[in-house]
């Protein structure tokens, strides 16, 4: 990729080839829950987050919206929700929720995001990993190895840590951190 110009090295970005176009066409993006960018944007379900049912109901009524209309507006914005799911949120039967869904409901009913959110009652292994000092250190090393912002590296490692949860397993926190350590070491060795 290097070239010389007037005795100095200058950059040359690669040309686009037919092979590149077909690689792009055939590429399968990561699943939403494994996508670091989706995680940064709050599109991935956070096991530690729930709707505060009574707060949602109060805000919806204050906004003058029937429940089916709220659901319809969410569907128009690309959310796959049903009337019964939304009823469950208001009746205190909310399962884990993506932060961006809470943001969407907050937008529609004109409330603040934080006023509609509640913490999950259970211990969440991914949250425990995420808040540990070891995890923060691993993220710093990964950000350096990948030359990406800290938040991007954090989302990448959170996705890696969350995979056993989404697949139905409950990761041991120490074992998960050890797996992340191996991952970061691999990233660092690639950069050397």
């Amino acid at each position: 990729m290097s070239d010389t110009f007037d005795g100095h090295q200058r950059e040359r970005l690669p040309a686009i080839a037919l092979e590149d176009l077909f690689a792009g066409a055939a590429y399968q993006p990561p699943r939403l829950e494994d996508d670091p960018a989706a995680r940064i944007l709050g599109l991935v379900v956070d096991p530690a987050l729930r709707f505060d049912g009574s707060a949602v109901k109060r805000a919806r009524i204050r906004a003058g919206l029937k429940l089916p209309l709220l659901v319809q507006k969410l569907i128009q914005r690309g959310w796959e929700v049903t009337n019964s799911e939304a009823l469950g949120w208001e009746n205190g039967r909310s399962g884990a929720i993506a932060p961006a869904l809470i943001a969407a409901v907050a937008d529609i009913v004109g409330a603040s995001q934080s006023s509609l959110a509640a913490s999950a009652p259970t211990n969440d292994p991914v949250s425990a990993i995420r808040t540990s000092e070891s995890f923060r250190q691993l993220v710093t090393r990964a950000a350096e190895a990948l030359s990406v912002p800290w938040d991007v590296a954090a989302a990448k490692l959170e996705s890696a840590a969350a995979i056993p949860v989404h697949r139905g397993g409950t990761p041991d926190i120490d074992a998960a951190l050890q797996s992340l350590e191996v991952l970061v070491e691999e990233l660092e060795s690639r950069r050397r």
Binding site: D20, A23, G24, A37, A38, L41
Partner: peptide
Amino acid sequence: LAEAFREHRDVLYRIAVARLRGA
């Protein structure tokens, strides 16, 4: 932004892969 990303992320990845592959 989140909703737009969810709708268009396939396209964004295709463009990124096609442009990065040469290097």
